[in-house]
Amino acid sequence: MSFAIALEDPAKPEIIALLEDGERYGASLYPAESNHFLSIDELRADNVRFAVARDADGVAVATGALALNESWAELKRMWVVPTVRGRGLSKALLNELEDRAREAGITWLRLETGIANHEALGLYERTGFVRIGPFGDYRPDPLSVFMEKRLD
């Protein structure tokens, strides 16, 4: 199955539905105070690059965002529809976002995910992310894992 990844507006109804699926999944694993989702308005900010992966029929099947800061960026809203997982899409989406970060002159890519997101943790560890302490506005949370990767 082939996929196309491009930057899109997250306010499209089909994209909102994907984001809501990711939020429901997060809510099933963690209390509200341990979920750190960016809103649609925040995802539309000038410093955010929002990517969507579509299948061969043009159906949106994955999302991911990059929130740019001075010398670092945060990976946000990574979500892949369960029916298309295991086909390398999350890695392809991550690679696209890393390329966008490099183009923007970003040195460090950071993220926060939950301790129960085993597939996400595996992906990030396999692709060179290492665990760090809280960054930005995050506070220590026993349900959170903070990671970063140096982009060369």
Rank of each mutant, 00 (worst) to 15 (best):
Y25Q: 12
L66M: 11
A45E: 15
V48L: 12
G64P: 00
F129T: 03
E148T: 05
L68G: 01
R131F: 09
A53V: 12
L19D: 04
G86F: 01
P142C: 03
M1F: 10
I5T: 11
H36R: 10
D99S: 13
T113V: 12
L151E: 04
L109K: 00
V81N: 02
E74Y: 01
F129A: 02
L111V: 01
E96N: 11
L43A: 13
M147T: 00
L19K: 04
S71Q: 09
I132M: 09
R110P: 05
L29R: 13
N47Y: 04
D99F: 12
D21T: 04
P10R: 03
N117L: 15
F37G: 02
G58F: 07
A45Q: 14
V59D: 09
A62D: 09
S71C: 03
R150N: 04
E74F: 01
A53Y: 11
L43W: 09
S2I: 14
D57L: 12
A104N: 14
E74A: 05
L19M: 08
T113Y: 06
Y124N: 13
A92P: 07
A116T: 11
A27H: 13
P13S: 03
L68W: 04
V145E: 04
G88M: 04
G133K: 10
L97G: 07
A17R: 14
I5Q: 12
D41M: 12
I15V: 13
Y138H: 01
D41R: 14
G105S: 07
V59K: 14
D9V: 04
A67V: 10
G88E: 06
H118T: 15
L94I: 08
K91G: 12
R100P: 03
E74R: 05
I106L: 03
D9I: 03
D152G: 15
G88N: 05
L19Q: 06
M1D: 12
N69Q: 11
A104K: 15
G128H: 06
